[in-house]
C-alpha cells in the first residue's frame, strides 16, 4: 500500500471530475481533525481515512485485501476505471443526475442502458457524453453511466432511444462478485 504519485493523482481526479461537481469536498478536513486520503494497493485505488490508512501499514501488502472505499482500478495502459464501489462517493456530489421510473430500475440493474421510456427526470443542461449518476425515483443511487444525448436532444428521442450508456450498476455486486475485490 502506497500513496499515489502526481501522475496517478491527476488521472484519478480527472476521472472523478467527470462525475462530480465539487472535488474539494473529497479532501476537505473532517470535524475530528482527520482527513481522507488516496491509497494504492494491487493497482486498486482506495479512498480511506488517514488514521485507518496509518493503521493498515501494519498489514503486509499481500495480506491486505481491501481498506476504506475502493474507487476503482488503475489499468496497465495508464487509465483509471471506476468501480461500482465508488457509487456512494459519486452519488454524494454528482454533477448530472438521471432518475429512472420503477419499470426502468430492474432493466438497469440487470446491466442494460437507460432508455427514454424509463427516464422519470433528468438534470437540465446536461451535455452529451458526460458522466451522470442514475437514481431511482426514491433517490436511491443505482449506478452511473455516460449520457448518450444532451437533455434537449433526449426530449425529442423516441421511447426506445438510449439516453444513458451504463458504466456500472448495483447488480455488479452479484454479477461480478468474484472479481470485484480481487483479480
Amino acid at each position: 500500500m502506497r500513496p499515489l504519485t502526481e501522475e496517478e493523482t491527476k488521472i484519478v481526479f480527472s476521472k472523478l471530475a467527470t462525475y462530480l461537481s465539487d472535488l474539494k469536498g473529497l479532501i476537505a478536513p473532517l470535524d475530528d481533525g482527520d482527513r481522507y486520503v488516496f491509497r494504492l494497493n494491487h493497482a486498486r485505488v482506495y479512498y480511506v481515512r488517514l488514521s485507518v490508512a496509518n493503521m493498515a501499514t501494519s498489514v503486509s501488502r499481500d495480506a491486505l485485501l481491501s481498506l476504506g472505499t475502493c474507487l476503482g482500478k488503475l489499468t496497465k495502459t495508464g487509465k483509471f476505471r471506476l468501480h461500482i464501489t465508488a457509487l456512494p462517493v459519486l452519488a454524494e456530489h454528482a454533477r448530472y443526475k438521471i432518475w429512472v421510473k420503477e419499470n426502468g430500475a430492474q432493466p438497469f440493474l440487470y446491466g442494460s442502458n437507460v432508455v427514454k421510456a424509463h427516464v422519470g427526470r433528468q438534470t437540465e443542461d446536461c451535455p452529451e457524453h458526460s458522466g451522470c449518476v442514475v437514481y431511482s425515483m426514491a433517490d436511491i443511487p443505482l449506478g452511473f453511466g455516460v449520457t448518450a444525448r444532451s437533455t434537449a436532444e433526449a426530449r425529442r428521442l423516441d421511447p426506445t432511444g438510449i439516453v444513458c450508456f451504463r458504466q456500472a450498476d448495483c447488480g455488479e455486486y452479484l454479477r461480478d462478485e468474484d472479481t470485484l475485490f480481487a483479480g
Partner: peptide, 26 residues
C-alpha cells in the same frame, strides 16, 4: 523512485488544475 503526493496542499493544487480543465471542457 516515485514522488508521492500525500500532503493536502499539493493535492489541492492538482485538484484545482484538473477541475479547471474539466470545467473548461464541459
Amino acid at each position: 523512485g516515485k514522488v508521492f503526493v500525500d500532503d493536502r496542499e499539493s493535492m489541492s493544487t492538482i485538484l484545482a488544475i484538473v477541475q479547471a480543465e474539466k470545467e473548461g471542457q464541459i
